[in-house]
């Protein structure tokens, strides 16, 4: 699950992930989205289900990994995460509380990194790089291919660099853990 507020690209992140799994990893996947009536600013999420075989239920029931990019989304959607599941938060925006202790917590200052790279809008792609590394539902190669056909050509280089930053951070985080 990619959760945040409208305008952060949480649906795009889900779309890139679902497409990576379905087209480039040749698995089955579905993407659904949940949002309020406002186009921007309200808590929303996109849900990706990945499986080797045909998917019976397109919506997320209890996600094994959740990305949270806003405090409101954190309060609203966190209880849906599977106990012991992976929780990835954008630590430049979200402050976790004791609820996070039930999960495997990863913190990524994605928005801050994206701002340093000159474009706040690629925060979602920084996170995608991170997710690709820690979650085995989708491959890094698949995600890269999926980014290439989804983002406009003039922003591709920036997006691929943002993705790379995310994977590097994940490697560090995983190393620290082991």
């Amino acid at each position: 699950m990619f959760a945040g507020f409208g305008g952060q690209g949480v649906v795009t992140a889900g779309y890139i992930t679902g497409q990576a799994a379905a087209i480039y990893d040749d698995k089955e996947s579905t993407l659904t989205r949940v949002y309020g009536p406002e186009a921007r600013g309200s808590a929303c999420y996109s849900g990706v289900v990945v499986d080797e075989k045909e998917i019976d239920y397109p919506y997320l029931l209890s996600p094994e990994i959740m990305v949270v990019m806003s405090q409101e989304a954190y309060e609203k959607f966190l209880p849906q995460l599977l106990d012991g599941g992976m929780l990835v938060i954008d630590s430049s925006i979200v402050k976790p509380d004791e609820q996070a202790e039930k999960y495997k917590l990863f913190t990524v200052p994605a928005t801050q990194i994206a701002e340093e790279m000159g474009a706040r809008v690629v925060a979602n792609v920084v996170i995608l790089g991170f997710v690709g590394k820690i979650w085995d539902g989708v491959s890094i190669k698949g995600l890269q291919e999926s980014i290439k056909v989804t983002v406009p050509k003039r922003h591709l280089d920036l997006n691929l660099r943002a993705f790379e930053r995310g994977t590097e951070l994940a490697e560090k985080a995983l190393k620290k853990e082991s």
Partner: peptide
Amino acid sequence: ETVGHSAGK
């Protein structure tokens, strides 16, 4: 809505 707004292969 479910079919229209969900993506798949």
